[in-house]
Every structure is written in structure tokens, then in C-alpha cells.
């Protein structure tokens, strides 16, 4: 169906990176979790509570 990479020369670093789906999985989980979720939760947890809230 599609090309699957037939060159026989040295494999470029970017290509190696894109072929490593488990590295992509790790980065795809870690980057948004840190930048969106963890950072957001940290900000929420650091909001001072109103004095009337027990």
C-alpha cells in the first residue's frame, strides 16, 4: 500500500526517532501530562482557600 522505507544507506537520526513508536509513546504521554495536567493541578492546589471554607 504505502512506502515502508527501502533505502539501504545510513538511517537518519530523525527517521530512527520516528520509527521508535515506544519512544514516541513515552514522549506523547509525558509532555502533555507535564505541561497541561501536572502544571494545571499544581496551580489549582496552590490557590489559597477562602477562610469560610473549613
Amino acid at each position: 500500500m504505502e512506502e515502508t522505507g527501502k533505502s539501504t544507506g545510513p538511517i537518519p537520526g530523525w527517521q530512527k526517532f520516528m520509527d521508535n513508536i515506544f519512544l514516541l509513546l513515552a514522549l506523547g504521554v509525558v509532555i502533555p501530562t507535564l505541561i497541561y495536567t501536572v502544571w494545571g493541578l499544581w496551580e489549582i492546589m496552590n490557590i489559597p482557600r477562602l477562610p469560610i471554607v473549613p
Partner: peptide, 10 residues
């Protein structure tokens, strides 16, 4: 597949 997944699978 050998090295790279076909693009649709990727």
C-alpha cells in the same frame, strides 16, 4: 514491515 510502519499504520 522492516523498519518503518506504513504511513496509514503510523
Amino acid at each position: 514491515f522492516k523498519r518503518s510502519l506504513p504511513l496509514g499504520s503510523f
